[in-house]
């Protein structure tokens, strides 16, 4: 293990080759954005809604690929992301419809998650069966596949992430108020459903940006675990969001470096485990703050 330190160090300091550096940058940017958005998401008590949203992207990815295949277009990330967004919105709509029946919100989330995911797998296996000659590589979206990430992909994450952060900055006051006291926000004339929709749109943004890095199964961890960790350290929302972003960014950076140095380590799971480790370590360290 000792002999690996130089390689890990090289990756951490972006000297392990251009591709590894790109992945590090992309993963850190994703972690930052996910931590910030996740803070608002968890305070609004919608943590697992993101799980449904993430799983619901899969059929859209597959359909977008099939559509571009039918039109004779090459595989393009923006098109796949558009498909993912549309099917995630359909999933969100389905959750909200089902949550109004007597099965309740958690069952609605679980039902939509498994159904959309199942449909996605059906489409993925259909694509595999078509033997298009073109490498679909859509399985990478399940658990992330950083190896094939291009400069353009990282560009999408950085620019998209910046837009999401900008939106959060613009909306942070109403979002915080609604999360804290929905009733008061309503009385003050805030359109609560519209701000909730905006929050979900930002979460969807994070999910789309995370498809390649950690994949749709594990992206929910980047949204909730750093936020939960930050919550242990501070009682102030602004500090919490920044800290969660920092934790996510560091986990992304270190996780991507580790997997660059040790090629067998899959990036997404490593990043997720790092954030979880941060959460576990923080519990005893912050004990005094909660007493």
């Amino acid at each position: 293990m000792n002999s690996l330190w130089p390689e890990i160090w090289a990756a951490l300091t972006l000297r392990a080759g251009p591709n590894a550096a790109l992945v590090c940058l992309g993963a850190a940017a994703l972690g930052l954005v996910a931590g910030v958005v996740g803070s608002f998401l968890t305070l609004r008590k919608r943590a697992l809604m993101s799980d449904a949203l993430a799983h619901a992207t899969l059929p859209g990815v597959g359909l977008a690929f099939l559509a571009s295949l039918a039109l004779g277009l090459p595989r393009s990330l923006p098109v796949l992301m558009l498909g993912a967004a549309l099917s995630a919105l359909a999933g969100l709509w389905a959750v909200q419809r089902l949550a109004r029946t007597r099965i309740g919100q958690d069952a609605a989330i679980g039902a939509v998650l498994s159904t959309f995911y199942g449909a996605g797998v059906v489409i993925l296996t259909l694509i595999q069966g078509l033997r298009t000659g073109q490498q679909a590589g859509l399985e990478g979206f399940l658990l992330g596949a950083t190896a094939g990430m291009l400069r353009a992909d990282v560009g999408v994450i950085v620019i998209g992430g910046a837009l999401v952060l900008l939106a959060i900055w613009a909306l942070h006051r109403p979002l915080a108020l609604i999360a804290f006291d929905e009733g008061a926000a309503h009385v003050m004339g805030l359109n609560v459903p519209r701000f909730d929709a905006a929050l979900m749109a930002l979460v969807l943004g994070v999910v789309l940006l995370g498809l390649q890095v950690v994949g749709l199964i594990l992206i929910v961890a980047l949204l909730i675990t750093p936020a939960a960790t930050a919550r242990l350290w501070t009682h102030r929302l602004g500090t919490m969001a920044l800290l969660a972003g920092a934790i996510g960014a560091v986990a992304g950076w270190v996780g991507a470096s580790l997997s660059a140095a040790l090629p067998d380590l899959p990036t997404g799971p490593v990043i997720v485990l790092l954030t979880f480790a941060a959460l576990l370590i923080s519990i005893p360290l912050t004990k005094g703050r909660r007493a």
Partner: peptide, 19 residues
């Protein structure tokens, strides 16, 4: 110990274990 919401506690745990 950490007084996290049930949904957050569950989500953090199952993603970590799956990872």
């Amino acid at each position: 110990s950490a007084r996290l919401d049930p949904g957050v506690a569950m989500g953090a745990t199952f993603t970590a274990m799956f990872a």
